[in-house]
Write a protein that binds this DNA or RNA. Structure first.
Lengths: 153, 153
DNA sequence: CAATATCGGACTATTTTAGTCCAATATGTT
DNA sequence: AACATATTGGACTAAAATAGTCCGATATTG
């Protein structure tokens, strides 16, 4: 259905939470408790985010995670890239793969354009914008105004 | 990885082929042979596309499929909608679902905006634009210029 | 009436995604 | 120095979405 994975969704919530905490370190347990993401899942996500360089980790007692950069410099595109790999609408956008079977593959350029447009849209939103529902302005004409779902398990 | 499903990819190829054929009827076997999509899969896709109103079907001997509307009036958004349901980046964009757990769901408005941007990008591309690599103009600055992959089975 | 082709649904297999767990390592405290 | 706490890394299982297949029914043409 052309959606981001649940893990990416959870990961975003976690990042938003870390953004709210500022520079203070948060253990994985803290994050899980506050965001209502299952602990093992939160641990997994924090590991991935750390490897991607979006959060920094401190080991040992009193250790924990915090954002590696200010929230205004982290974009949705980076988050998606970190959690589910580079955006690639069509299959061959990433790998060479066995295409061009007799050059009958007429679809191509346009999907690349769409892909780029999506990337642009993602790059345009930063973490601090994800923090809170829009400041009453922006684009108020949305039909399905429900808030993002999130379930415990 | 935020990609369209393979079926949607195949479906697009099929629609492009039908567009090239103009008003002439094509049997599912024809389509499968020409597009190199497995026959049962092509049948399935054509059924879905017919139900969505993108193609018209004629039964009986000498029957087949053809586009229901001119290619310039069919957008990528419609194709995606038909083949994998409405675009909904986040889980609750579609159903009410059990969200707002203690109103700690701060992520919301921004994803809706991203979702809308993606829809706009999809709505901006029509079937005849998907037909062929871009007419040398548009946005020539794309890095990954590979053509979309498609494999037999 | 026979041949061809869509229609509609059910069904299986495959792949991707979620989620869990455990041993190892690092840091601070007693 | 030893212990408690917390990250790290990888492997592993379970669940769900996606792909792909098949069959009987229906409609149309010759």
């Amino acid at each position: 259905m052309l959606r981001i994975s649940r893990l990416t969704d959870y990961g975003t919530v976690i990042l938003v939470y870390l953004a709210q905490r500022g520079d203070r370190l948060c253990s994985a347990s803290d994050v899980a408790a506050e965001t209502h993401v299952a602990l093992p899942t939160a641990q997994k996500l924090l590991k991935v985010l750390a490897k991607a360089g979006l959060v920094e980790s401190t080991r040992g007692s009193e250790g924990g995670y915090c954002l590696a950069r200010p929230p205004s410099s982290i974009t949705a595109a980076e988050i998606v890239d970190a959690l589910e790999g580079p955006v690639a609408i069509t299959e061959c956008s990433t790998e060479a793969s066995q295409c061009e079977l007799e050059s009958m593959c007429h679809t191509g350029g346009a999907w690349q354009r769409i892909n780029q447009a999506i990337r642009d849209a993602l790059a345009d939103v930063t973490l601090d914008e994800l923090d809170c529902p829009p400041p009453a302005a922006r684009t108020p004409a949305h039909k399905t105004a429900g808030v993002t779902a999130r379930q415990q398990r």
